[in-house]
Nucleic acid binder design. Structure first.
Lengths: 136, 136
DNA sequence: TTATTAATCTACTAAAACTATAGGGTGAAT
DNA sequence: ATTCACCCTATAGTTTTAGTAGATTAATAA
């Protein structure tokens, strides 16, 4: 299951991407429009800012805005930042590889074989989809 | 992340599929060979039996054995039984569809769009992989 | 200039849900 | 009598999803 964190993060990015200009938009407005718990969204937007997708402005009239062009925001990194590793098992993870403790031989492991395929297919989707593809 | 339930279930199915004959194999032996908590594996094998993949025999010399040919066990149903819906969001699930409460319009929802692609690609893998493909 | 207001930032806490596992008893097959 | 699957329950641990309280920053009104 996709975590709400990822779901909310994607919706927020989309909402910001759909704006005409890039003026700051308050958390409250995004949360309201997308039916998201404001405090939860706050922490999500913070991590998206730290990743380099969003800029923020404090004080009155402040809020969040897209820093990059939507076509330069690939789902690969968005998913990694919000949801974590794309691989369902660490032994097939590109960025977070770890050997399975219980598994003596990766090559002959059925879980490894299957999850490798699944990872490749998911990666294919994420690599070929940017935020721009999800906008209206 | 793939749950250990699914991981263990797959390993058990593979272990049984790799046997020469179809004699019953005790839970303890499978658990031992695959480094699995025996009690946990017990409940997993039970659900696999109820799904119709495994048969069991009680008493001395008892255990579990494959009922179907490995080529007739598609990963689609194995994953659904062990891991749950293949879709990461219920609004793109074939077998467990549910409308998102927060989302007013599915067609314009970015999460929906993305997860539809991911589901299709995962489904493609699972549908084209049977237990036979994972054996040695 | 000063006070007020509106917003992000930070950290801590808490409730709820889910995961993984353990324990003990029952009953069937040998 | 023994060996196994079967079934039910409980529980520790982890993750998710928030909520609370306050600090910080910036714009604006007095």
């Amino acid at each position: 299951m996709l975590s709400k964190k990822t779901k909310y993060g994607l919706k927020a990015l989309t909402f910001l991407g759909n704006q005409k200009d890039r003026n700051p938009i308050a958390i409250a407005e995004i949360a309201n429009h997308e039916n998201i718990s404001q405090k939860f969204l706050e922490s999500i937007l913070l991590t998206l800012r730290r990743t380099g997708y969003l800029g923020s402005k404090k004080g009155k009239g402040g809020g969040y805005y897209l820093i990059k062009d939507p076509s330069e925001i690939p789902m690969t990194t968005v998913m990694r930042v919000l949801e974590g590793p794309i691989a369902m098992v660490s032994c097939v993870s590109l960025n977070f590889y770890e050997k399975c403790e219980d598994c003596p031989d990766e090559q002959s492991c059925s879980v490894h074989k299957l999850m490798l395929k699944v990872r490749d297919s998911a990666l294919d989707v994420y690599r070929n989809t940017t935020l721009a593809d999800l906008l209206n």
